[in-house]
Amino acid sequence: MDIVILRDSAAVAAEGARRVRTLLHKKRDAVLGLATGGTPLAMYRRLVADYEQGRVSFAKAITFNLDEYVGLGADDPQSYRYYMNRELFDKTDILHSNTHLPVCADGDDPDSVGPVYEAAIRAAGGIDLQILGIGRNGHIGFNEPTSSLRSRTRVKTLTRETLESNSRYFDDPARQPKIAITMGIATIQEAAAVLLLATGEAKAEAVQQMIEGPVSAMWPATALQLHEKATVLIDDAAASRLQQRDYYDWISEQRRALESQYGGG
C-alpha cells in the first residue's frame, strides 16, 4: 500500500485528478471505477476544469460506478446516476453509453443485477483504476462491516451509521433508501490499480485501521492491504492517528528522490 500524505483536501483532489489524467493520457480507452460522495467531488470538479482547458479527454473512457441506491430513478437528485451526470458526465466529452451503474430497474429483481454487472466489467476488460472513498466505519463502496472479503456485486443493507452519515443529502428522511447495490470487495480487488481518497479528521480512525490494523471484515477497507497496487491519498487531518506517520513521510521523501534521479511518477 502506497501512503501519500498531503497538506489538505485541495491537494488530495489535485493529486487524484493528476493521476486520473495521467492514466487517460497513457490509455485513452481506460476503464475507470468511480465513487460518489463528498470526498471525490473536488477531484471531479478539477477533472472537469482540466477537460475545459483541453488537458484531458474522456471520449473513449468507460466507467463503472461502485454502487447505486435501490428505488431511486436516474432523474432523482439523490441517485448516484444523477450525481455523476451533474458532476462529471454532462460536463465532459464522455459517451453516456460508456457509463455504467448497478441499477435495478422498476420491477426487476435486485439480486439479478450483480451477476450482470460483473459480466459487463469483465466484457470491458476489467477496471484499470478504481477510485474509492472510505466511510467512518471503514466501508468501501457500500461494503459495510462484516462484508465478506470475497464478496461480489450484490444487494447490501446499509448500517444505521451510514444512513446517518448520508442523511444530510435527503430533505425527507422517509425517502432515504436503506438498501443499495454495490460492487463487492473481491470485485474491487480485481482492479489493476486502486486509488483511495480520504480527508478530514472524521476519517482518521478508519484510515488508521485501513493502513495499520489487521485485515478484517469489521473494517472492510483493510482488504486493500492485500492489493498489489493500492494508493491512499490523505490529508494531514485524516492522517492524524497514524502510528507510523514519520515512516510514511520518509518513504515519500525517498520516492521523490528516486523519481528525480530516474524519472517516473
Rank of each mutant, 00 (worst) to 15 (best):
I3F: 06
V4H: 02
A11W: 01
A14R: 15
T22Y: 03
H25V: 01
K26C: 05
A30D: 03
G37Y: 05
R45H: 14
V48C: 05
E52N: 05
F64K: 12
L66G: 00
Y69C: 02
G71K: 12
D75C: 03
P77S: 09
P77Q: 14
S79P: 05
T92C: 06
L95E: 04
C104T: 10
G107H: 04
S112L: 09
P115C: 11
P115H: 12
Y117C: 01
A119C: 02
A120P: 01
R122Q: 14
A124I: 14
G125Q: 08
L129V: 05
Q130D: 01
G135W: 15
P145Q: 09
P145Y: 08
R150A: 12
T162L: 10
L163Q: 14
S167C: 02
R168N: 03
Q176K: 07
I179V: 15
A180R: 05
A180K: 14
G184C: 08
Q189E: 05
L196A: 10
A202T: 08
E205F: 06
E212F: 10
G213Y: 13
S216E: 10
P220R: 01
T222P: 03
H227C: 10
R241W: 06
Q243V: 09
Q244D: 11
W250R: 14
I251F: 09
S252Q: 15
Q254T: 04
R255A: 08
A257P: 00
E259S: 02
G263F: 06
G265H: 11
